[in-house]
Computed example of a mutant assay.
Amino acid sequence: MALAHLLVASEGRAVAVPDGLAAELFRHALDTLLPTGRPAKRLALAGPGLPAPDAGVDIVLVPPLPWTGRARRPPSTAAVPMTADIWSQLTSPHRELPVPVTGGMPDGVFRDDPLPLHPRRLFRPDWGVFLHTLARLPAVREPWLRAIHDHVRSRPYADPF
């Protein structure tokens, strides 16, 4: 769903996604769907506990306000809402440990924990959710966005991303 909102906020321009988990989620799909001719819009994470975005940031990924469910809206930027649990993973991916820590390891003992799980392939958005969300946004009436919608919809079994 956030990818559809991010496309609308891009206004048809490429989006520069910061490195990290946000890049793993969005960079490949955005690079595939958006043209590269004009200067790219800058994307950043914003919200509670994070510093205010730089002046050059055009789009921010934000969690919804808990009491209204609407996206937080920083001044002079486009806000793309994300569910709070996904947003918190993007901002602090190692916040919670899988098991409680009770003390240090004794001297001479080496940990043999497995490496953290990492996907074996690129993240691919669910095209059904993407199309469903995009079709319900008023901006889909714009020709450039309608062309993206129709292209993805016309190839249901191909990988549009």
Rank of each mutant, 00 (worst) to 15 (best):
A2T: 15
L3G: 10
L6E: 03
L7T: 08
A9G: 09
G12V: 06
R13A: 13
V15Y: 07
D19N: 12
L21Y: 03
A23W: 02
E24M: 08
L25P: 01
L30H: 05
P35Q: 06
T36L: 07
R38N: 11
A40W: 08
A46N: 05
G47C: 05
P48F: 01
L50N: 02
P51E: 09
P53T: 09
A55M: 05
A55W: 02
G56S: 14
G56Y: 01
V57P: 05
L65R: 15
G69F: 10
G69N: 07
P74K: 11
A78S: 15
A78Y: 11
V80N: 06
P81C: 07
I86Q: 07
W87R: 02
S88I: 00
S92C: 07
S92A: 14
E96D: 13
P98M: 03
V99I: 13
V99S: 12
G103L: 06
G104N: 04
V109F: 11
R111G: 14
D112K: 09
D112R: 13
D113Y: 11
P114T: 01
L117W: 14
H118E: 12
F123W: 14
W127F: 00
W127N: 06
F130M: 11
L131H: 03
T133M: 02
R136C: 06
L137W: 08
V140D: 02
W144Q: 08
R146D: 10
R146G: 12
I148R: 01
D150A: 14
H151V: 00
R155V: 12
A158N: 06
P160A: 10
